[in-house]
Write a protein that binds this DNA or RNA. Structure first.
Lengths: 340, 340
DNA sequence: ATTAGCACTCAAACCGAGCGAGTGCCAAAT
DNA sequence: ATTTGGCACTCGCTCGGTTTGAGTGCTAAT
């Protein structure tokens, strides 16, 4: 059975190893921390921890490093979130102080988070599945090309070029715009796609093929928009922590560029009671990220939409500080975006 | 004086070194290429090239590698652009085949370019300085918040949230929208900013403060938009070529994330007669990119706007192939975006 | 101008000894 | 039953020395 002191030993092993990047031995533990026992005792505890696979020795006779299981134990039971420094709180204030465009807020947020944690930071766009259409705008680019702009109550704006099978004159465009808006505004994105279908019935016989073409394109635009997007910053922090990756950081950087893997990870994470969730090391192996950890938290955007934000870095990271930063930024973002 | 054969020697040194990543010696040259002379003769030529600082020896007695000056000579006088393979041409077709949104086209293009060259690829958004406003849309988000959407004839769409000092009801919004559009549509972005100022005169006395506030915000939006943006892909290729950077790739990745340095570089490059410009190694030292080269080309977007696109990678890169790829993609993009 | 020959250089690979942080275990002490 | 001091042992690092080999520079002959 792992005693209380053993767990304390695990805690300092994690802390010291994260700080020094070197395997930590029994001697250095009694030196740096006041356990009130001798090195030999610590060694016994370490043998216990090794039994439980919470720590491991890189070579037969060297200090110990935490296993993934050890990190997991640490974040679940041992880590207390380090409160942010004054400077960090100020950074949050000044960075996110002035409100603006959604794009703008999210890109500021992600840069802030990467600076606070020195890791790769990611912010997910608020999901559109709960969003409602606020406005649809159609602009003529050429006789057979339209630009459609959809505005959602979450602040999302999405535009797309539509190719239409026949000319669209100004009056027709006005009619389209008006009927589209009366039919669709206020609808959730799912309903909107459904209502598109019945749209042609509102127009004269001759218009129907064109209207149907447009409705189809708009429905597609709505659908394409449901898929989520990420904003990412701080990829350079990966090379800064390169030594922490046993292999190469190439697959990690590739995953970051792809985004799709990260989105899946986000969707599978569940927050613990502190509001921050962690996925550690080999837990991410199915995604090809066996040496990285992800810390994430949810945040509330306009319209009650919920989305995630978080950081990604080497398994050997400062969980206490980073989890605190993620939580703080998520809270602040919810406050500055949310409906309240 | 550097003879013709010496230049041939330089060419094969560049080619072999780029291919093998190892200093190339006189022996291996006569082995791999049929110069019809002995190794000793090659050595004499190499001594000449070294005199001219076109090549250099990493250690006293090892093969030679090209200097930056040598690479410059190579791209200016020695390199013939390797025609793309069939597969590559097909990749361009399938990748850029279907037209769509400007955002979409550019992001496809940049991914394509990074795949073709295995380098970091960059595409600049078409400059707005030549763009004309096609439409301005105002949407009410809350009584004192407006979303403004500006659409330019280049396909640009830019949105921003405006905070207004007083409530704006539906009719007023309609009036604003109408007068803004009649006043501004067709104007270039520079003129538009100017015309904003006189806008308040069109409204009743009571409205003027609000109108002025909005005009100010819009003018700012126009101005902010003048600054150019880049789309970037393939940053992971930097770590793939990491060994080619003597120091760390950290500053390079940071510059890529910053974008601002890259924009300045783009603006200073001038195309040669082949339409592709190169900035090599220490030529980029003022930007902190002394070990990287940039290949760029201009492309034509809608409205006659011109913008740049290119790749960035280690000085030791395959200039022949990469310049060909940059040129091909630039041409294709011009064709698919241009007014013709 | 080119070439063969030859002495010389120097990075990289290889080797083995010695160091030292750290372990595991055991017998004694609390 | 837990803790502790002691001690032999392990094994990755570092450091000096040797070897190897690709490649050069020079010189004298063609």
């Amino acid at each position: 059975m792992v005693s209380d002191r053993s767990l304390e030993v695990l805690r300092v092993i994690v802390q010291d190893y994260v700080a020094s990047r070197e395997p930590v031995g029994s001697k250095s533990i009694v030196d740096r921390h006041s356990f009130g026992v001798s090195a030999a005792t610590i060694r016994n505890d370490m043998a216990l921890l090794e039994e439980e696979e919470l720590i491991t020795a890189p070579h037969t006779s060297s200090g110990r490093i935490p296993t993934d299981k050890g990190y997991r134990m640490f974040v679940d039971h041992l880590a207390d979130l380090k409160p942010l420094t004054i400077a960090q709180r100020q950074a949050i204030e000044t960075f996110l102080g002035e409100s603006a465009d959604l794009d703008d807020v999210l890109s500021r947020t992600v840069r802030l988070l990467s600076q606070l944690t020195h890791q790769v930071a990611m912010v997910q766009y608020p999901s559109l599945s709960q969003a409602r259409l606020r406005h649809i705008e159609l602009v003529s680019l050429s006789p057979t090309k339209l630009l459609s702009v959809m505005i959602a109550d979450t602040g999302h704006v999405d535009q797309r070029v539509l190719e239409v099978p026949a000319e669209v004159d100004v009056e027709f465009l006005g009619e389209l715009r008006a009927k589209l808006n009366t039919a669709l505004v206020g609808a959730g994105v799912l309903e909107a796609a459904g209502r598109m279908a019945g749209l042609a019935a509102l127009f004269g016989e001759g218009r129907r093929p064109v209207v149907n073409a447009i409705a189809l394109a708009l429905a597609e635009q709505v659908a394409a928009n449901r898929q989520d997007r990420l904003v990412i910053a701080g990829a350079s922090n990966l090379v800064r922590t390169e030594e922490d990756f046993h292999g190469s950081i190439l697959p990690v950087l590739e995953a970051v560029e792809e985004q799709v893997v990260l989105l899946r990870l986000f969707s599978e994470l569940e927050a613990d009671q502190r509001g921050v969730s962690a996925s550690i090391g080999r837990e991410n192996a199915p995604f090809g990220l066996a040496e990285t950890s992800i810390l994430a938290s949810g945040y509330l955007a306009q319209g009650g939409a919920v989305a995630h934000l978080g950081v990604l870095g080497p398994t050997r990271m400062d969980y206490s500080s980073n989890m605190a930063a993620v939580r703080a930024v998520a809270r602040y973002l919810s406050r500055s975006l949310g409906d309240g």
